[in-house]
Design a protein around this nucleic acid. Structure first.
Lengths: 193, 193, 193, 193
DNA sequence: TATGAATGAGAGTTCATTCAT
DNA sequence: TATGAATGAACTCTCATTCAT
């Protein structure tokens, strides 16, 4: 196994264990075992468990943002652009249930809260969201989207998506393309003037 | 301290500590200390930490449902009834940040997921929700609300509320009566046909 | 075993293991085992290993100071008082080899240095030494003892004692009452004018 | 870097790290890093960490003995010769604080004790000390120095020196030429008849 | 009934040493 | 010969739970 493979294996093992059992039931010993390395090896790639968790989160975030950008065009009307982004995110989540679960675990852990707070204070703007920010700000300016604080627009747009993704992944609902489209449009209804 | 007082004190201490520090940083010893009882005493009221956590969750759920019922009238139009319920929930959350945080912690812990799964399988209907269920079902029948699975209507209605409540409690937005009203109305927009 | 006995057993086990093998080869697991308690029990009596080590040191220091005070009289001439104290200390050390070794280990560990530095800075005077300080200061004033900084007088008086005690304990020399007396007098010779 | 340079670099790094942080806080990885070699390289020059530590000690001892011999003349009177040697040693120590600290660490580690015991048993005479031995033995024979076992004469002569050097290096006293001279003379007072 | 001292398994982490390159 | 990634045993410390009092 190459150096890079080992790092990947550790991250993958962390993703799986944290997603399935939560942070507290993903001890380093188990992560190492599943990654096929010795316990001490984790510390050659990450300073400590904390850093491992945060780095994994950041990598997932980056990957998602990149995915959402593909096929996104600034020329389309607001509604279309919004639906593209929001249904894209939902599709990503239900295609990557482990990643979704990991992200949820992270957001609700003390680290996640601290991480998010740092980010918010650093920017004055909701997290990692340039495309969304742009879309929402323009929409407000052009009086297509309700005139509410940016943070609330994010809540209206993504609150339902998170909730829906969770219910799908837990097996409480079975989404298909039609439903995803309908949900994205319903979210738009809550934003539009 | 009476028997019932002790039980209450333990539940209250658990609420506070879990809300502030998360499950893993709320050791039994600390719960006992804050409750003013000995560590062993917890086990006279609850079989183990797990049970304590689940019981507390159930009590909070019951309390919230009772609160929302007050002042609710079936005579008002759909929109009005919906806005009343949803803004009521949001007000409850921002008035009870510890309870909100505890519930969030619970939902995202392994216990919470198992707990919710049992409930869903037992009922065929979203959780603890008689008034909401009625409202949504009637709304769909009378073609006032979108014809979507009940679970999704819940996601559209409450996803944003949870998200908004969290951001308020974390200090990322400062809600007032006007904003709460606007948010509730926006949620309605996403549901209505 | 009573509560106090357990604390004593832990301290005694620490004394023995550190004296014989040094700090690094006296792991908590071994200390607990020799004390006849579980590993976790150590932490009911001491906040951490550090504190255990420092507390033990302080208790030994207190015990030694108390011992030296018995039979000490301010009426005797300088030389006699000095010889009494210094030969008393030497006798104590060779009668308590474990304590002597522990104290040496402590003084030469990072904790010991920090501990001593705090003490020196706190007082402007050499460590825990009221009787000695008094004796030396008076001796200097009355021109019986050389006019040197207090710290150096301590070095001249105790440097040889430590060295002699170590050699006795390691078996390189066999002290008896006569030799002890001669050594104490030789130390006095280095101090007196 | 040549073979010999690498060996030197490893020894120097060990000296510095052990002197500053103690044996337990001078991990091989750090020694290697400071020496500018790979961790594994240490094991091409020394069988293990233990051997590295002992070899370094022996080299320091040899260096000190050589230094003290320069300028030493057998023609001077006892007192003068003694003062020359003892003040020379003290000057060496305060000019080489890292070496002094290393030697102290070594003497008080389990290895150091074993090392010294081997040496004593091998010789019947105090350690590495030909000039001193000669001086003391002659002094006793000629009734200039107290008639005490050689080991004790060493303790009287060097015990204070070690103690004084330590206090200077730790910053508890600031030595100058006058004080060094006075200390050496005081040591002589404790030896002379 | 209530206590809280004691437990000991298991957590995260370090580090002397090895060995394929 | 020199490397440095990998190892895994051993470290200190935590905490849910038990049980003699």
């Amino acid at each position: 196994m190459s150096k890079e493979d080992k790092r990947e294996a550790i991250l993958q093992a962390t993703l799986e264990l944290v997603a399935e059992h939560g942070f507290h039931d993903a001890p380093c010993s188990l992560i190492a075992e599943r990654a096929g390395v010795a316990a001490g090896t984790i510390y050659r790639y990450f300073e400590n468990k904390n850093e491992l968790i945060v780095v994994l989160y950041r990598e997932l975030e980056t990957k998602i943002n990149a995915t959402l950008l593909t096929g996104y065009t600034l020329e389309a009307p607001f509604r279309e652009r919004f639906v593209h982004l929001v249904s894209g995110l939902l599709q990503y989540f239900i295609a990557s249930p482990l990643e979704f679960k990991y992200i949820e675990q992270f957001h609700h852990s003390p680290y996640g809260v601290a991480f998010r707070r740092d980010k918010m204070l650093g920017q004055d703007e909701p997290e990692g969201c340039n495309i969304y920010c742009e879309l929402f700000k323009q929409g407000v300016t052009q009086q297509v989207i309700k005139d509410l604080p940016l943070v609330l627009l994010f809540d209206l747009a993504f609150g339902p998506i998170i909730s829906v993704a969770r219910n799908h992944i837990l097996g409480f609902i079975q989404l298909d393309a039609t439903l995803i489209q309908q949900i994205a449009e319903a979210c738009w209804d809550s934003l539009k003037r």
